Computed example of a mutant assay.
Amino acid sequence: MRITIIAGARPNFMKIAPLIHAINRSREKGSSLSYRLVHTGQHYDKNLSDTFFKDLNIPNPDVNLGVGSGSQAVQTANVMIKFEEEMINHPCDYVLVVGDVNSTLACAVVAKKLHTKVIHVEAGLRSFDLDMPEEINRMVTDALADIYFTTTPEAGYNLITTGAKNDQIYFVGNTMIDSLIANQSKFVKPAAFNELNLQQKNYLVMTLHRPSNVDEMDKLARIINLIDSKFTDKKIIFPVHPRTRQVLEKLNLSTQNIHLTEPLRYPEFMYLVKESFAVITDSGGIQEETTYLGVPCLTLRNNTERPETVSVGTNMLLAFDEELISATIDQLQAGNWKTGKVPVFWDGKASERIVEVLEKLA
């Protein structure tokens, strides 16, 4: 079985790395599975993509399509144009996409129009919010996919309600947690840890990149100022996404407790998260990682496609309500945070389960 594996943005690399390792282990035992790794180049910043191949011990991609930045339509169209050429030159049996970025949708569409079957890893997640570009990507990809690998039973239910059949859905767990478990021993202090004299469990990590939070300058300024004012005795480390930095540079805010850094390598960022007092984010994957690590997570969104991180884990959703955010931060600092659990099958073996299924399909 020939599989083309797609990665385009930072979260994709953590999701494909354990899968590549599992396929390689299977091949060493005589498996007929083979893969071609395609990097679309959706994330082109070195710290957002290139370092992941070394840090996660995965081979360099067979090709980098180099699509770079652009609007949703421009970026998606460029991936489709370049991936169509890639598919024509290198046909395969299955195209495997992960997550919900523009590359996921674009490559799924191209594959199906070239009569190639699509596998979606992390299928069935839903926020039920069509204002989120990722939700549209998830829905379209799931409408086209032939095989679904899910992180939770709820995701499978979402797929069934939209027409998927039971024999297409495989509940395997979370490959991002596979990466976290496999790489915990490699987590390393970033330079900022000592430069800022951070103390374990006495600082916060913050990430913001959702259009709903960063595209409106006034809203982003209010978020930054509120959080800066609420944590007077703890430093807040803010690795800044390129998208967010562009807006912050225009705002030119002065903060006392928030410290900006460049995007960090995966082992450095995860060290910060693991040892932090809490995380403030609007990311999807970080909700999962903090749940596994037992770190309190304040998610600045109205909804989440990962509800298990709220119902089971350590995550709490906070819509943009300054009084609610302020009160929740008070609750956190008073030590009144919930004790979470790790969801079923978030055990580091999701990729092994996926390969077992692929072997049967082959």
Score class of each variant (00 low, 15 high):
114 L>W: 04
319 A>P: 05
31 S>Y: 00
68 G>H: 07
14 M>R: 02
344 V>G: 02
95 V>K: 01
330 D>K: 12
169 I>W: 02
352 E>W: 07
249 E>R: 08
109 V>L: 14
362 A>T: 06
252 N>W: 01
111 A>C: 14
105 L>C: 09
242 P>W: 10
76 T>E: 02
146 D>H: 12
7 A>E: 15
349 K>E: 14
18 P>I: 04
319 A>T: 08
165 K>F: 14
297 C>V: 11
24 N>P: 00
31 S>D: 00
93 D>G: 12
62 D>K: 07
188 V>A: 14
185 S>P: 06
336 N>V: 01
255 T>M: 01
139 M>F: 06
124 G>E: 02
193 F>H: 06
45 D>C: 12
169 I>Q: 01
343 P>T: 10
65 L>Y: 14
297 C>S: 14
162 T>E: 15
230 K>N: 00
124 G>A: 04
353 R>G: 07
329 I>M: 11
291 T>H: 10
205 V>A: 14
120 H>L: 02
351 S>H: 08
134 E>R: 13
211 P>E: 12
121 V>D: 03
97 V>P: 12
338 K>Q: 14
62 D>C: 03
175 T>M: 08
125 L>Q: 00
128 F>C: 03
343 P>I: 05
261 T>K: 03
59 P>R: 02
251 L>P: 11
215 D>K: 14
180 L>R: 06
30 G>M: 01
99 G>R: 03
268 E>A: 13
186 K>Q: 13
70 G>L: 09
272 L>T: 12
248 L>G: 11
44 Y>T: 03
305 E>L: 13
293 L>F: 05
362 A>H: 04
150 T>G: 05
312 V>R: 10
100 D>K: 04
37 L>P: 01
94 Y>S: 10
298 L>K: 01
136 I>S: 09
271 Y>M: 00
18 P>Y: 05
9 A>T: 15
162 T>A: 10
63 V>A: 08
20 I>H: 12
278 A>D: 10
268 E>I: 12
157 Y>F: 10
224 I>L: 06
193 F>K: 03
93 D>S: 13
344 V>D: 13
225 N>W: 00
107 C>Y: 01
359 E>A: 10
9 A>F: 02
288 E>F: 14
273 V>N: 11
296 P>I: 02
17 A>C: 10
165 K>H: 15
7 A>Q: 15
33 L>W: 02
237 I>Q: 07
219 K>D: 03
12 N>I: 02
64 N>K: 09
187 F>D: 13
321 D>Q: 09
103 S>K: 00
275 E>D: 08
149 F>E: 09
126 R>Q: 08
348 G>M: 10
232 T>D: 01
122 E>T: 05
308 E>F: 09
321 D>M: 11
356 E>N: 09
40 T>F: 03
237 I>H: 05
241 H>W: 10
27 R>K: 13
100 D>L: 04
49 S>F: 05
22 A>Q: 05
184 Q>H: 13
141 T>A: 12
252 N>E: 06
142 D>H: 04
71 S>W: 04
117 K>D: 14
17 A>Q: 09
63 V>Y: 02
352 E>F: 12
61 P>W: 03
48 L>Y: 07
101 V>K: 03
223 I>N: 02
44 Y>R: 00
189 K>R: 15
156 G>H: 01
251 L>C: 09
343 P>L: 05
35 Y>K: 14
192 A>C: 15
172 V>A: 11
111 A>I: 15
350 A>T: 06
167 D>F: 03
311 S>D: 10
307 P>E: 08
3 I>S: 06
159 L>N: 03
